[in-house]
Design a protein around this nucleic acid. Structure first.
Length: 272
DNA sequence: ATGCCAGTCGTAGACTGA
């Protein structure tokens, strides 16, 4: 049983695409004990509410909120510094298809004074696929929601955490030449990502984890991890009020190693 | 690149992922 912290200073916030919370439950529990994070935003839980293994988190002293509608997507936040005012989805979050169907891609909560969002941005699939337009629309609505939150409270401490499925710069992939015509690196996707940043949400991890060759995701196929063929697509974007508290950040490559790893590594932010 | 690897459904093979 972890001891809840008495102070809200020296908080660690992480984001991690776990690629199934059920298949990964033992590794997640071991990682929580090892990493000593206070808040973790998870994506791709891949389960419904009634299937979510809440005890994995509560047994370690965390509160947990989950949003899952099917075996796809699914987002959660676990916290041991409070978990209040849980919000499922953000205002005007787009749905997918005709008619538009809501997907479990966003959950927010107030954790120790920080508004934490766990976000799973749509993949896009192919550049000419309807899912690609959905991805761009989703990012644009996230930008609009974020801008509105900062307009209402410029000093708000907001963390947009998640798998953005965008590699914003060429050195965020192992070889940009290999991505000709591929999603994740196109100008519209990068513009949509930068628009979120420009709305006031800075990538506060990169200054502490400079590249090139620094990634958060490695495909299971083709020995991508040992070959260091990765992508940097998981981010913690911080509002000005939160960015001012950032003292450090790291990507936990160790967690990508061994049997039963997620294809994404956790990304951890250290706050004063 | 038709696959590669992994997880979901369910119990074969389709779908999703990036």
């Amino acid at each position: 049983m972890s001891v809840p912290r008495a102070s809200l200073a020296d908080v660690r916030i992480a984001t991690w695409n776990v690629n199934s919370v059920r298949a990964r439950s033992e590794r997640i529990a071991a990682w929580l004990e090892r990493s000593d994070v206070d808040v973790v935003a998870m994506q791709e839980t891949k389960c419904r509410e009634d299937q979510f293994p809440a005890s994995v988190f509560t047994d370690l002293g965390y509160e947990v909120a989950h949003h899952g509608l099917s075996q796809w997507n699914g987002v959660a936040i676990a916290s041991r510094v409070g978990l209040d005012d849980v919000r499922v989805g953000f205002p005007e979050q787009p749905g997918y298809g005709e008619p538009a169907v809501e997907e479990a891609r966003a959950i927010g909560a107030l954790c120790g004074g920080v508004r934490v969002w766990s976000l799973y941005i749509p993949n896009g699939r192919e550049v000419d696929h309807p899912h690609f337009a959905y991805k761009l629309r989703w990012l644009d609505r996230l930008r609009a929601a974020g801008a509105q939150w900062l307009a209402e409270d410029p000093g708000a401490q907001i963390a947009l955490c998640g798998d953005f499925n965008v590699a914003p710069h060429d050195d965020d992939v192992w070889d940009i030449a290999e991505f000709e015509g591929a999603t994740h690196v196109t100008k519209p996707e990068r513009d949509a990502f930068e628009a979120v940043v420009d709305a006031g949400f800075a990538d506060v991890v990169r200054p502490h984890t400079p590249g090139p060759g620094v990634y958060t995701y490695w495909d299971y196929k083709g020995l991508s991890f040992p070959k260091r063929k990765g992508m940097r697509i998981d981010f913690l974007l911080a509002s000005p009020g939160l960015a001012a508290r950032v003292e450090g950040a790291r990507i936990d490559r160790e967690e990508r190693k061994g049997k039963g790893a997620s294809d994404h590594a956790p990304v951890i932010l250290e706050l004063a």
